[in-house]
Amino acid sequence: MKSEKTYTVEEAKRALERYCAYQERCHQEVEQKLREMGMIQLAIDEIIPHLIQHNFLNETRFAESFARGKFRIKNWGKNRIVRELKQKGLNERTIKLGLKEIDEDDYEAVFETLSRKRYNQLKKEKDKYRKRKKFADYLLYRGWEADRVYAKAKELIP
């Protein structure tokens, strides 16, 4: 028989303080963690406000960190970042604040670099329409804006 550890509210608060201090979290992730710990709704309703009050949990800070990280590390475009943040249950206002962390000049430079890199990977493809499709699919999947992607495809693959 599997024995699952049970937590008091105080133990759960301390555990979640460490969990939130390690990296920025959104409310949804914290609530999921509490459910995995076997906490009842009454305890969850006490712990989450405690984390917010003591500044362990801040969705604006999470959105900013998420947008910065996914853009810089994974080279995601704004569409993909917005989609992922919505999936995590953040509101429009918070998402807009998160996107402000992305510098427009950096955004342009990363798009340019990424599109050139993908274009060079497709040198062997002979059919220009398949080449354009592969090029566009790659960038669209990563969340770059469609008008920007198609304009670059026409520019690089005439």
Rank of each mutant, 00 (worst) to 15 (best):
I52K: 15
H54K: 15
A43Q: 12
H50Q: 05
L51G: 13
F56T: 11
K86F: 07
R61C: 08
D45M: 03
I81E: 01
V82Q: 13
Q53Y: 14
V82I: 11
K74G: 06
L51D: 13
K74T: 10
I47H: 09
T60S: 05
K70Y: 14
R68Y: 04
A63N: 09
W76G: 00
T60L: 07
G77D: 06
N79P: 03
I44Y: 00
A67W: 08
E46I: 04
Q53A: 06
K70I: 07
V82W: 00
N55D: 12
F62G: 04
N58Y: 08
K86Y: 10
E46N: 11
I48L: 11
A63C: 06
D45Q: 09
K70D: 09
Q53L: 10
N79D: 01
N75T: 05
R72H: 12
S65I: 02
F66R: 01
H54S: 10
N79E: 08
A43Y: 00
F62W: 03
I73W: 06
I73M: 10
G77F: 12
T60M: 08
E84M: 04
F62N: 01
E46P: 10
I44D: 14
R83F: 10
H54F: 08
N55W: 13
D45L: 03
K78A: 00
I47Y: 15
K78V: 00
G69S: 09
K86S: 05
T60V: 14
E46V: 13
L57F: 06
K86P: 05
E64L: 02
L51Q: 15
E84H: 02
I52S: 07
